[in-house]
Design a binder for these strands. Sequence first.
DNA 1: CGCCATTCTTGACTTCGGTCATGTGGGTGG
DNA 2: CCACCCACATGACCGAAGTCAAGAATGGCG
Lengths: 259, 259
Amino acid sequence: MRLTNQATGVIAQRLSASAPAKVPDVTHDAHKLVARKSLLVRSLPEQHVEHVLSHALWRSYDRGETLFLQEENAHAIHVVLDGWVKLYRVSPTGAEAVVSVFTKGESFGEAVALHNLPYPVSAEAVSPCEVMHIPANVLISLMRKDPEIGISILAATFSHLHGLVSQLEQLKAQTGAQRVAEFLLTLCQGEAGGCEVTLPYDKMLIAGRLGMKPESLSRAFSRLKTAGVRVSRNHAEIADIEALREYAETDRADSWHKG
Amino acid sequence: MRLTNQATGVIAQRLSASAPAKVPDVTHDAHKLVARKSLLVRSLPEQHVEHVLSHALWRSYDRGETLFLQEENAHAIHVVLDGWVKLYRVSPTGAEAVVSVFTKGESFGEAVALHNLPYPVSAEAVSPCEVMHIPANVLISLMRKDPEIGISILAATFSHLHGLVSQLEQLKAQTGAQRVAEFLLTLCQGEAGGCEVTLPYDKMLIAGRLGMKPESLSRAFSRLKTAGVRVSRNHAEIADIEALREYAETDRADSWHKG
DNA sequence: CGCCATTCTTGACTTCGGTCATGTGGGTGG
DNA sequence: CCACCCACATGACCGAAGTCAAGAATGGCG
């Protein structure tokens, strides 16, 4: 648990008071802004946004803290306002599989919460973070008045489906190094040329997210040197984005067979 | 394409007539029954079911026929009434990754259709099959009257999310043979003891579905002999379901490390 | 400043799974 | 009925990735 908890204290108060509307807190305002920009809230009909935000719970989590566990019943939708949250699943064998990692502006748990179903995954803060929880009943009651809301929730859910499908494709059709390359590409927004990026979280988690062991990630990084990638600490330099994309999209067989 | 297309002809007629309500066709009635029992339709409010079914399109597909392609815009939700349909994705490298395989009573495309978004995957019939298409606008207009419908669509979408999450977990945390073991377990409904199952589709597709090459599937099967599995043609005998589950859930490291 | 825990890297070794080549059996079409 | 084509199995080979172990680099904390 985090020890320097001045901030945590403030927010804990806020948590207990469930109508935080006029707390004159700059960080809270900043978080509200992030919330408004999140995919989920952004796609809600404008007239309901204020209502939803004012009925939400705002909480801080320390690194390593659990938001919820697999099999627990869902009663809220979660929107990350700051920091990183991982969704993972523990297989019967005890191995942990990271399903996704969310950050500022991203939401999860939409489909489960509206049905009071058990979560299929567990959620844990991997850095100190701020999370907004929207109680499911708030959304459900709104939804009965305005069906449009159902559509926006479906939009968010679809983007998760899409993300999972991409991940499946990558796992089934790409090597580890290629997945790492794609991961790096998602971090740099430029289209071409060189680029420097900061790795958003530690390498153990990156490895998990990409479906490999930390040792394999290290090796994948060194393999990417030939593609113009240099990594030190949590900092990566990409010499040529196009070249890296080329690497990621080259069929494994081609590389030595036709090369 | 299928050459014996008497049946296909009949259904093609039905397809062109968009109000097939009183066609006295036994197979059509049988399909309607399947449709009613599908997860999607089953969770719709009773009073809308008839309306939805009567506005649906009913079509036959031959083995190998394409229902839709990745990137196409979605305008309908699909419910499989008979046969098998695979959803797959072609990666930039050209490799095909099977995302899921659906059969009788299962639906897909819910979230995409309601937004007119492009499909993230392609769909192909892997056996002759019957599919019901529910035009998205039918559901959308109903949804505006009764928000309950949004919830039931979310239910179907959630079960897909859940399926993808399980698949991810399996790919990240299990060996090929273990995935095959789990696959076999899903085919037998018994809890314990022995069991015989028929493989639902050809081994190439099973291999794809489980994220491996046909050769690896063969080897996985022979590896499972030690766990009491015997396979010949499309028929598999499982000596002891419990033992097989045990095999599937044993950590890879354990097997030789502590064994 | 120095200790300690953790993360990260590297190396040796093993296993898993993909690739290629070959052989076999079953089914379809001529 | 035979030829041909697939799906499928098997073996040889190899690269990719996991396991184990040891050491280097970091970062927090006393």
